[in-house]
């Protein structure tokens, strides 16, 4: 089997700070592969190394069969990229942005004109082609960037947080484009995101990244099996006291969430719930509210790191305190 991307022990440092701590992974031809992780996990740094914009400090990376350090030009010819931050020329129109991109990648004349039309129609921006990009909404700019990244028919497409900051409708719209690209052009797509639903919706395989390391890799289902059970959330009058009493065989783990709810890991929520009420009654605990769900990727992340994927800054401290308070059996 040949791989679109092969990475071995990749390390990238900024001064004393190590952003990427020796990661290895392989992306198969024609799949959508997602890097899922919180901000600052090293996802964008990895993308920048793979797209030849940064040189790694150690390790190797091969993209479309070419080494990113030794053959950057070959790599650049075969990839398309949508950066996390906008990279269009705001003063120019959508068409002019596309035209400049096409010229740089060696297209000209009728061939270029047809390609621009095709791609702008694909992202439904053809009617706005003569409007300067500075008048575009965030979603329109993103779509233009997607159209631009596809113009030169790359073998591998990098999408760095493609829907960050967009409203839910626009996000769903952009997901449709991404799925269509994969299906119509059998393109390999490397995606980074901190949205769990995005990874779950789009990716064939997901690597979860945290603090510069890949902590788990597999399909969404594989990853959920890591949690291995259903999750019940219980709101109680006195969670600190209550959590000590929830000692029973059917409860595999429990901890207090930042919002004060108690989270219980159980094998089967429907069977566990009556037992839970029984247990609560026996111990004189008042349960105010119960919800349960199948594990999500957020539960996987929580299971692996003790934090939620959106934890940032001050919330991390809280998460760490909760980790310490976690009960182990």
């Amino acid at each position: 089997m040949t791989y679109a991307i092969e990475v071995e022990n990749l390390v990238k440092k900024y001064g004393d700070f190590t952003a990427v701590k020796g990661i290895s992974f392989k992306v198969r031809n024609g799949e959508i592969f997602a890097f899922l992780g919180p901000n600052g996990a090293g996802k964008t740094t990895t993308v920048h190394v793979l797209t030849t914009l940064l040189k790694p400090n150690a390790g190797t990376a091969t993209v479309a069969g070419h080494d990113v350090v030794r053959e950057p030009m070959e790599v650049r010819r075969k990839i398309g990229i949508v950066f996390q931050d906008p990279s269009t020329d705001r003063e120019l129109t959508a068409y002019e942005n596309m035209y400049i991109h096409g010229r740089i990648y060696g297209y000209s004349g009728n061939e270029l004109r047809e390609k621009i039309e095709m791609m702008l129609k694909f992202v439904e921006l053809w009617e706005f082609k003569d409007r300067p990009v500075k008048f575009f909404s965030g979603g329109m700019q993103r779509r233009l960037e997607i159209a631009r990244s596809l113009l030169h028919e790359p073998e591998i497409l990098f999408l760095d947080e493609p829907t960050i900051g967009l409203d839910p409708q626009t996000r769903a719209h952009i997901w449709e484009y991404i799925r269509a690209m994969k299906e119509e052009h059998s393109m390999t797509i490397f995606l980074t995101t901190h949205y769990m639903d995005e990874a779950e919706q789009l990716a064939d395989r997901i690597a979860i990244m945290d603090y510069g390391k890949i902590i788990a890799e597999g399909t969404a289902d594989d990853l959920k099996k890591l949690v291995g059970n259903d999750v019940i959330y219980v709101r109680m009058e006195e969670p600190e006291e209550g959590i000590k009493c929830l000692n029973a065989e059917f409860i595999r783990g429990c901890r207090i969430m930042p919002d004060g709810r108690v989270r219980l890991d159980v094998q089967n929520a429907s069977e566990a719930m009556p037992k839970l009420f029984e247990l609560a009654q026996k111990n004189g605990l008042r349960i105010l509210e119960v919800t349960y769900h199948r594990p999500t990727l957020n539960d996987v992340f929580l299971h692996l790191t003790g934090r939620e994927i959106r934890d940032e800054g001050g919330e991390q401290k809280v998460a760490r305190m909760i980790m310490r308070a976690r009960m182990r059996r």
């Binding site: 906008p86 269009t88 020329d89």
Partner: peptide, 10 residues
């Protein structure tokens, strides 16, 4: 505004 990146990756 990021246009430089478009050139650097070309």
């Amino acid at each position: 505004f990021g246009f430089i990146k478009e050139i650097l990756v070309a």
